[in-house]
Design a binder for these strands. Structure first.
Length: 570
DNA sequence: GCGCCTTTGAAGAAG
DNA sequence: CTTCTTCAAAGGCGC
């Protein structure tokens, strides 16, 4: 099946039968031993972080409350169910949910986007914040990008949805809804318009086969009801729209595109290979920027490229359309604030490690929720920007260090710095009274002085049923879905494999997963082993240096019990 | 002030 | 077909 599951629960289970350990794909290319060493260090760091998590997790009552070990987010589920029931009822009643264009978003309410932004043409900070939350893909153009300098905040900050982002009032995933508001339009648009989308290749509007959309946006209430809508929590308690849509708002000749205000502007400009100059700063006449659009002013490439001035001009005119967020990214957006709140850590790198672990500890259903969201996001994205390709964004970022690595002195410095950190951290570890799960990564032992206290009880997911189910295999739970969806043909392919990162993950990234082949146990390392390739799929033996480093690592930790927890899998 | 770090996943490029 | 690379978010930190 074309879905994430790639074939069955077993594979998914794989997800839970393994734990990935990052290994710095970046450095991996280094031919020198430094590479391996650095990798090793990073792994150690990683493991330390994990230890820290585990260590602190047990005392986090708040976390425990929020995420019962066996059922993280159960509360959300409850709400979701309730909302869902109500929404479903409404839908079946033929209310304004009726529009079938995006059945996948049957219950979403769109705020009156015009107000927050355009009450007099200006955008209040609060309004912007609001916007940011709703438009995850949007890098709101900075003042530089706004001809009228409406935006008081720098564009580069636009994407940071800090303060409010995860306020409990608005779910971080809310952004998704912004892709699809059309179905909230009163009445049902002419059928001939509904599923019409632009052919990515030709740019010609076409009407996809029902099967193309149904998987993602099931038309039948029953289908919708098959799974609790991930955004269910967005629904207001009383069954009334958390957000309202201006009557008749967002009308567009291509309703099926879930055209939002800014989108229509894109329709005229985007997607042709020679993108026409978009309306000022990707703002629709309504002034609402699209989430996925980033003013080139923000993401400009440094003058390190070879583009001619004219080319630059052309480039500048192109809005930067961001990639749709994947499941994990969506999850991160949602959970980051919580993790940060629960933990004194502030560095995203550390937070992300934690999130990565949490991700793996999620139950299959929970992951499926995010995969579903991600799929919808992609779907919507592809419909909004039919001509967009991930490739369009290549090179938009600064070159990564990977490109100039092997010899660079900075690398060397970095390497030694990490060694220093590592050593220091080891000392701390051994000096620690509770040496079992002492500190954070070496990095943080030095740079961030702070420890992650009270962290995720659920992290010790070893016994978590959630993980016992593996994960994501059902993500694509939605049926059949992707299968026929032309909007995400590639997605189908990749979704198949993705969940099975166990086997498909490129070694280059050195995500090492642990599993015991042939054994129906799910080993979970509460303290990850450094970069050794325990995974059977990793055929290439570690380099001598690698091995040496590993040996060293074992020596270092030999006094510490390696918590390899195995749990039975179904 | 830019870029790294760190995570997973999607998608494109390259082999 | 497989492998590798880039980019999505985020924010502290190093240089």
């Amino acid at each position: 099946m074309p879905q994430l599951n790639g074939g069955g629960g077993d594979d998914l289970g794989a997800n839970d039968e393994m734990i990935s350990f990052k290994d710095e794909g970046e450095q991996e290319e280094k031919i020198s031993e430094n590479v391996s060493a650095e990798r090793d260090l990073d792994d150690v760091k990683s493991s330390l972080v994990n230890e820290s998590e585990n260590n602190s997790s047990s005392s986090d009552s708040e976390q425990a409350e929020r995420r019962p070990q066996t059922r993280p987010d159960s509360e959300s589920y409850e709400k979701t169910r309730d909302y869902f029931s109500e929404a479903l009822r409404r839908q079946q009643d033929g209310g304004f949910f009726k529009s079938p264009h995006y059945p996948g978003y049957p219950f979403l309410m769109i705020p009156d986007l015009t107000n927050p932004y355009l009450s007099n043409g200006s955008l209040s900070p609060s309004a912007r914040t609001y916007l940011q939350m709703k438009w995850p893909l949007l890098d709101v153009p900075g003042s530089a990008g706004l001809k009228d300098s409406r935006s008081p905040t720098p564009g580069h900050l636009s994407n940071k949805v800090p303060v409010v982002q995860h306020a409990h009032h608005v779910h971080p995933l809310t952004p998704l809804i912004t892709y699809s508001n059309e179905h909230f339009t009163p009445g049902t648009p002419p059928s001939h318009l509904s599923p019409e989308i632009l052919d990515p290749k030709t740019g010609i509007p076409r009407t996809p086969h029902p099967s193309e959309l149904s998987p993602y946006y099931p038309l039948s209430p029953g289908a919708v009801g098959s799974i609790a809508h991930p955004l269910g929590w967005l629904m207001p308690q009383q069954g009334q729209p958390m957000y309202s849509i201006p009557p008749g708002g967002f009308r567009h000749p291509y309703p099926a595109l879930a055209m939002n205000a800014s989108m229509s502007s894109l329709v005229s400009s985007r997607f042709s290979p020679h993108m026409v100059t978009p309306p000022p700063h990707s703002l629709h006449q309504t002034g609402i920027p699209h989430p996925a659009i980033v003013s080139p002013a923000i993401k400009q490439e440094p003058s390190t490229d070879n583009l001619s001035p004219s080319m630059h001009k052309e480039e500048d005119k192109k809005p930067h359309i961001k990639k749709p967020l994947n499941a994990f990214m969506l999850y991160m957006k949602e959970m980051r604030a919580k993790v940060v709140a629960e933990c004194t850590l502030k560095e995203s790198a550390a937070i992300n490690q934690i999130l990565g672990r949490r991700w793996h500890s999620l139950s299959r259903e929970e992951q499926a929720k995010y995969y579903e969201l991600a799929r919808k996001e992609r779907q919507l994205h592809s419909q909004l920007y039919p001509g967009w390709s991930a490739r369009d964004n290549y090179g938009k970022r600064k070159k990564r260090k990977r490109e100039n690595k092997p010899d660079s002195k900075p690398e060397g410095k970095r390497f030694f710095l990490q060694i220093a950190r590592f050593i220091l951290s080891q000392q701390q570890i051994h000096n620690s009274a509770s040496s079992l799960f002492p500190l954070l990564s070496p990095d943080f032992s030095i740079r961030s002085k702070k420890q992650c206290v009270q962290y995720l009880p659920s992290e010790k997911m070893c016994d978590s049923p959630a993980s016992s189910h593996g994960s994501m295999l059902d993500s694509p739970a939605t049926p059949s879905a992707a299968l026929a969806s032309p909007a995400a043909p590639a997605a189908t392919h990749s979704e198949q494999a993705q969940p099975l990162s166990l086997t498909t993950k490129p070694e280059g990234r050195m995500h090492h997963h642990f599993s015991i082949p042939g054994k129906s146990t799910t080993p979970i390392l509460t303290r990850p082993i450094p970069f050794t390739s325990l995974h059977p799929s990793m055929l290439s033996p570690p380099s001598p240096f690698h091995q040496a480093a590993l040996h060293s690592h074992h020596a270092l930790f030999q006094s510490q019990p390696l918590s390899l927890v195995t749990k039975p899998t179904e």
